[in-house]
């Protein structure tokens, strides 16, 4: 495996370098605007600044899990069963779980400052916890023993079922009585009640986190490709060694 990694091209390309550099610039703006330029909220005060990380990370986690389901469906539907779809699905789920963890941690900190509690089993938090646990399960399924085709098939089925939880999580604050506030931007009335600079910084955060997500997924799926090549090369190396042994015994 190390031989393959040593002789392979790096996982970065010109495109990923451009995406990475743009992500750094956008995130730098989000940090400056979120911490220094945006005002305090009339009720929450300084703790509103957590929103600039919490909300984008939640949206990107949803995006990542939807992308995982789409890539999984593509793998199942396509005649060739290209393993690229499976690697994209796996990479996106891993990054999505990371963003979901950030959502839970930042939400917990905000909850302590606003609600007075780090955690409450209200509809939004309960369904989010369930979504998080489901995708950890998805990652565990990907690591079960079997061929890459078995891995792809099992995980694709799990991904297509797990994605159905996202509408439940998002609309939990509408369907049930929740301690968590309703959506500000994606609310049914479309009337966004947020200070302009706060809203702009929030959208900048979404753009920045999206770029980080794309950058991480591209790199991760390439490292997954290298691991798959290394695993296949193990078999090829064994055949070559056996042939060499056979030739020597002639």
């Amino acid at each position: 495996m190390s031989q393959v990694l040593q002789h392979s091209l790096p996982t970065g390309t010109r495109a990923t370098r451009v995406i990475g550099a743009t992500a750094i610039l956008v995130m730098a703006w989000v940090v400056v605007s979120g911490l220094l330029l945006t005002p305090q909220d009339v009720v929450q005060g300084e703790s509103v600044r957590i929103m600039y990380v919490h909300v984008p990370s939640a949206w990107i986690a949803y995006l990542a899990f939807i992308f995982t389901a789409v890539a999984s469906a593509s793998w199942l539907i396509s005649k060739k069963h290209s393993m690229g779809f499976d690697r994209f699905a796996g990479a996106s789920a891993e990054v999505g779980v990371m963003f979901m963890a950030i959502t839970l941690v930042t939400g917990s900190l905000w909850g302590r400052l606003t609600w007075g509690e780090f955690w409450q089993w209200d509809p939004r938090l309960t369904t989010t916890a369930f979504l998080f646990v489901t995708y950890i399960g998805y990652l565990a399924v990907r690591r079960l023993e079997g061929s890459v085709e078995q891995r792809a098939r099992r995980s694709a089925v799990v991904a297509m079922l797990a994605v159905l939880e996202i509408p439940l999580v998002h609309f939990s604050v509408v369907i049930w009585r929740s301690l968590h506030q309703g959506a500000t931007v994606l609310n049914p009335s479309g009337d966004v009640k947020m200070d302009d600079l706060m809203l702009f910084t929030l959208f900048s955060g979404v753009v920045g986190f999206t770029l980080v997500f794309i950058w991480l997924v591209l790199h991760r799926q390439r490292t997954m490709l290298l691991v798959d090549i290394a695993n296949n090369q193990g078999l090829d190396s064994a055949i070559v060694a056996r042939r060499a042994e056979g030739s020597a015994n002639k």
């Binding site: 009339v42 929450q44 005060g45 606003t114 301690l179 506030q181 500000t184 009640k193």
Partner: peptide, 12 residues
């Protein structure tokens, strides 16, 4: 007591 925040954000 848990404070239930609204979905409105305004400048202090």
């Amino acid at each position: 007591i848990e404070v239930k925040h609204s979905n409105e954000y305004a400048e202090k």
